[in-house]
């Protein structure tokens, strides 16, 4: 056995590799080319993937890459100018805005869809018919740690059985939004719950434990309806649908599944938006997101909001509508009408 014999094919292949081009000569109307780098939330990923897939059919020479570093991880790259577009399942945080401005990165914030955080229990759980925001707060608030451990501590008519909580990890945008919506303060929750970065694990956890309660995005409930029971949530306000409401598309669109409907965003770097392929991609995104989002398990935005977002991009309005201390819970229409 000769050393050369083993090594040669690999060396040859590496020399050939750079010359190896994909020869896709699709009919391109505007002959756009270039690379568009997208990274960020794994929740928003399926929508961006769908948009990139459709976009690729028209503009075959434009290379769109999408990563899943998470909302926070995505902003870290976005705010240093490493990526062009950042997927986010929550609005950008003040600290992230600071990093962005320190690196002279201006961004355009665009809502693209809704997700509903669904509250689920085991199908054998017969006692929970609905939950109020106050109930959820009692279960999840930091003070509950080690103290609220039984169902009958939430409501006295519920059985004296252990309460086991399952939820996404603290790095996820879902967790950020849930804590903000229920506790009124982001990242404030008890620490003694079973957390997982993979929502399918939470599904399994709740499906196998009669005393469990968990939360995650609507798509994970829709795909596992047989194993889980959804709990309607009552926000205690009469003006947006009285009584407990189920997490579903109609209620989210009508704005009555509150406070657990959350908007999903993409952030576009303003400097990058000058490039024709990115401008085209973002416009394509906004035009098609309302048909593509429901396909991948999310809820489309009201047409009015998409129109506002399209205008916001056309006028290159930078900054976040949430940075002025606006609550995440205000409706998108209100926020973006004021914001632009």
């Amino acid at each position: 056995m000769r050393i050369r014999d083993i090594y040669a094919p690999f060396l040859l292949a590496v020399l050939v590799l750079p010359a190896w081009k994909t020869n896709v000569d699709a009919a391109v109307p505007e002959n756009l080319s270039g690379t568009i780098k997208v990274d960020g939330s794994s929740t928003v990923y399926p929508i961006t993937e769908a948009v990139a897939e459709e976009f690729g059919k028209i503009h075959g020479d434009v290379r769109v890459t999408v990563g899943i570093s998470g909302t926070g991880g995505g902003f870290k790259k976005f705010c240093t100018g490493e990526t062009d577009i950042s997927d986010a399942s929550r609005p950008i945080k003040p600290s992230e805005i600071e990093t962005c401005s320190a690196n002279k990165v201006d961004f355009i914030e665009l809502p693209v869809a809704y997700d509903a955080i669904s509250i689920v229990v085991n199908p054998k759980n017969t006692w929970v018919k609905s939950l109020t925001v106050a109930d959820l707060k009692k279960m999840w608030e930091p003070e509950a740690q080690g103290k609220i451990t039984k169902w009958n501590q939430i409501r006295s008519e519920w059985p004296n059985q252990p309460l086991r909580l399952f939820g996404p990890g603290i790095d996820s945008g879902t967790y950020d939004y849930f804590t903000e919506a229920i506790m009124g303060k982001e990242d404030a929750s008890r620490g003694d719950y079973t957390s997982s970065e993979d929502d399918n694990t939470i599904v399994q956890g709740v499906a196998n434990d009669v005393n469990a309660l968990g939360f995650f995005g609507l798509a994970y409930y829709e795909e596992n309806k047989g194993k889980l029971k959804m709990v309607p949530v009552d926000d205690g306000k009469g003006d947006n649908g009285a009584g407990p409401q189920m997490a579903n598309a109609e209620n989210v669109i009508e704005g009555i599944y509150q406070p657990l409907s959350r908007p999903l965003f993409v952030y576009v770097r303003k400097q990058a938006a000058e490039r024709p392929e990115i401008k085209e991609f973002v416009q394509f995104y906004l035009k098609n997101t309302n048909t593509l989002s429901p396909e991948v398990g999310y809820v489309q935005l009201p047409d009015k909001v998409t129109e506002l977002a399209t205008n916001r991009f056309a006028e290159r309005v930078t900054g976040s509508v949430y940075s002025g201390g606006h609550s995440q819970l205000a409706t998108l229409e209100e926020l973006y009408t004021k914001g632009s």
């Binding site: 590799l17 750079p18 190896w20 081009k21 994909t22 896709v24 990274d39 990923y45 961006t48 993937e49 990139a52 897939e53 690729g56 290379r63 769109v64 890459t65 999408v66 990563g67 899943i68 570093s69 790259k77």
Partner: peptide, 13 residues
């Protein structure tokens, strides 16, 4: 930070 959605083949280092 390897990517997840890549709809083209690598064409260089």
């Amino acid at each position: 930070g390897a990517l997840t959605y890549v709809a083209f083949l690598p064409d260089g280092l």
